[in-house]
Design a protein around this nucleic acid. Structure first.
Lengths: 258, 258
DNA sequence: TCCCGAACCAATTTGCAAGTGGTTCGATGA
DNA sequence: TCATCGAACCACTTGCAAATTGGTTCGGGA
């Protein structure tokens, strides 16, 4: 009987050689392997056959590769994003919402305890602006400024940096549409009232009340988000249907690497 | 009577010209101004006089400058660090501890709800290792791995990224010494017991208990940190005195930029 | 005493070259 | 007919040197 996959012959040879190389003590740590072109010449096979073997080893987790860097022995180092784009790809709106629900109530509580009178003045002015803003973009901006001012008033630079990180992800790309749909008219009204309550609690230095009010507000926001995501086609005035079901696509694409 | 500050003559001239330039619509946004050398030649004064004028404008907040970048119209953009070194410079151990107190109890709660059985197995193994580890470095590593595994088990990639960020700051530079001193023998014993409690709660899926146990644990850690920082020279078995009062120096160096 | 020009320092940006894995293509040979 | 190879190209990363910028110092000159 003939070989069912003759194409793998020289690749198999390469696999044997590569496994021997990896088992060798010289590649113990996270050592870098020679470049593909060099390695192929060393073993005496073509680059294509070598790459097939490397794919197997990578799938096994014995090596990892990165374009422009090289091929390395050992498991792929834990990928901690640290830059926004990567992080933004790997998360999704519900995760972000969960994080906000953990962080921002704490920020509100701390703000109630540590805000300066100047902070509180700024908050009150912002609340007015948010309420009186008419267009969606304007609301968006004032709302963002309001939440950030609370984060500043909390007086913890590290927490502020974390808030900024989350906020930048939130403002990224495709989510704007989602958020816009999540704030219908009456919901927007409720948001304004909830903001007022949070700010009032902070202004009166009621830490617990501030935390509670903020959590309640974000619960409402989360609920709005869920509603939009689970019923993607509510009656729309303009009758337009989004070309792509944003939520589903986004989630699938994001989920691929935990 | 003579001019009390004749040195400001050409600088004043430059100020007038510059204000006119800034009021001009062409520099509305965060536009970049010409280089100092060019600008000085344009206005027809020396660079030194120009720089005096620019200092005034910068103090007024109408422009901002940065070495190697240039001079820009408008207020200085909000500085959101985003990279570890900057962040690490701008925070201090107590801030980090406060953040951990906000984040990690939430992580423990989520882990209790969402951990896989595999996660729980890993946690139990790690707890053993941590308890049996003898040297300080070993404890440090196992402890870190334990907390991170809980963060992983919480199943929120964004929260995990935040945890990693905080953890990297925590492990940075000078704080290692501080932490080492904060874990005396009996405190270490208590930590092991607290870890056991957190893990047990997670394993039994008791979300609230897990959150509570983790908060209690971190409260103890915080207390240990405070004790070390407020009484920098406890009685030491070996009689050695650290060459430098680490806490004070570190705090001062870190504090310089809020 | 003040101003100017020059020079130097330090931080940043920019462009380029080299090297890497990822991919496509046509020629070759079993 | 098919797998293979070599070549070429693309996309990404790294490293380095040049250029540019603000920050600073110094000496000449009015």
């Amino acid at each position: 009987m003939s070989n069912p996959d003759p194409s793998a012959d020289s690749s198999n040879f390469a696999l044997v050689r590569l496994r021997a190389l990896l088992d060798d003590s010289s590649f113990e740590g996270e050592q870098r392997l020679p470049a593909e072109r060099v390695l192929a010449a060393q073993i005496g096979i073509g680059r294509r056959a070598l790459r097939r073997a490397l794919e197997v080893l990578e799938a096994e987790g014995r090596i990892w590769r990165h374009q422009g860097k090289g091929t390395f022995a050992g498991p792929r180092p834990a990928h901690t994003p640290a830059n926004l784009e990567e992080l933004s790809k790997r998360t999704h709106p519900l995760e972000v919402m969960d994080v906000r629900l953990e962080i921002e109530p704490a920020l509100a509580r701390l703000a109630a305890m540590r805000a300066t009178n100047g902070d509180i003045e700024r908050l009150l002015r912002l609340a007015e602006k948010t309420a009186s803003s008419s267009d969606a973009d304007g609301r968006e901006l004032w709302d963002s400024a309001l939440h950030r001012t609370i984060a500043e008033a909390a007086g913890n630079s590290l927490l502020l940096a974390i808030f900024d990180m989350v906020d930048r992800i939130r403002q990224d790309t495709a989510w704007r549409l989602l958020r816009e749909r999540a704030r219908s008219g009456e919901r927007q009204q409720a948001y304004v009232e909830q903001h007022r309550r949070v700010i009032a609690a902070i202004a009166q230095r009621e830490a617990h009340a501030a935390e509670h009010a903020m959590r309640e507000h974000l619960d409402h926001v989360r609920e709005g988000l869920l509603k939009v995501m689970t019923s993607p086609l509510p009656a729309r005035m303009d009758g337009q249907i989004p070309e792509k079901p944003v939520t589903a696509d986004t989630k699938k694409e994001i989920r691929h690497g935990t």
